[in-house]
Design a protein around this nucleic acid. Structure first.
Length: 213
DNA sequence: AACTCGGGGCA
DNA sequence: TGCCCAGAGTT
């Protein structure tokens, strides 16, 4: 897909998802880290509801480590996978205190060492609160961008690199949410709704479908 | 590569 | 009701 087509695709997405932005607008690194760990296989909205209360009561790793797994699990239950997450979050808090003076590390290499933190979560943190160049690629971003043909990549890492080259930097954050929303509502994993998709005429995947029929 | 974790969203 | 999932870790 050439530059002009990508530009057109991004314009269509912008038009269709005008208010696409994360509900997790934490500027505090610790809060963003914990909220993002919780966001795995959950929704920003759900995590936003939980964390409002949670961070009032436990605003720092010092406060949060005082919780037991059971107590934290209860508080974050509605984000799903709460046993894993509460265990990981408490362990991560311990590591922050022991090895990082209670601060959130600023590199992806250090972040992914924390339990519950993978490449996607690390990228969210370094790009949103540490001003580093990174695009968080989740399952939707990976599927949609590859399916449409904005990128051709076999791995998440390669997808990140290509996206950073092909999407203007000032659109990275918005585009992330465009792809997610489009992936959920239209460009679904199992049965994509190509017949109602406004990207149809630019989409590599749909071109193949049309050629086959 | 295939599994597990889980309550919530949505048809 | 039943299906699917805004990741990460383990085997």
């Amino acid at each position: 897909m050439n530059k002009e087509e990508i530009k057109t695709v991004l314009e269509i997405l912008k038009k269709n998802y005008p208010d696409a932005k994360s509900e997790l607008s934490f500027k505090n690194p610790f809060e963003l880290l914990i909220a993002t760990i919780m966001a795995a296989q959950s929704t920003d909205r759900q995590v936003n509801i939980i964390t409002k209360k949670l961070f009032e009561l436990y605003p720092s790793p010092e406060d949060m480590v005082k919780l037991s797994e059971e107590e934290l699990g209860k508080l974050i239950k509605s984000s799903g996978f709460y046993r894993n997450k509460s265990k990981n979050i408490l362990k991560a808090c311990e590591i922050l205190l022991k090895e990082h003076q209670g601060e959130v590390p600023k590199t992806r290499e250090e972040l992914v060492k924390l339990p519950g933190v993978g490449r996607k979560t690390a990228n969210v943190v370094i790009s949103n609160v540490f001003g580093q160049d990174a695009i968080a690629v989740d399952t939707h971003v990976f599927r949609v961008t590859n399916r449409i043909g904005i990128v051709k990549a076999k791995t998440v890492e390669a997808t990140e690199e290509e996206l950073m080259k092909k999407i203007p930097k000032d659109l990275w954050s918005e585009a992330h949410h465009w792809f997610i929303l489009h992936g959920r509502r239209v460009c679904k994993a199992r049965k994509p709704l190509c017949e109602i998709c406004e990207l149809r005429q630019y989409c590599i995947y749909n071109r193949k479908l049309r050629n086959e029929s």
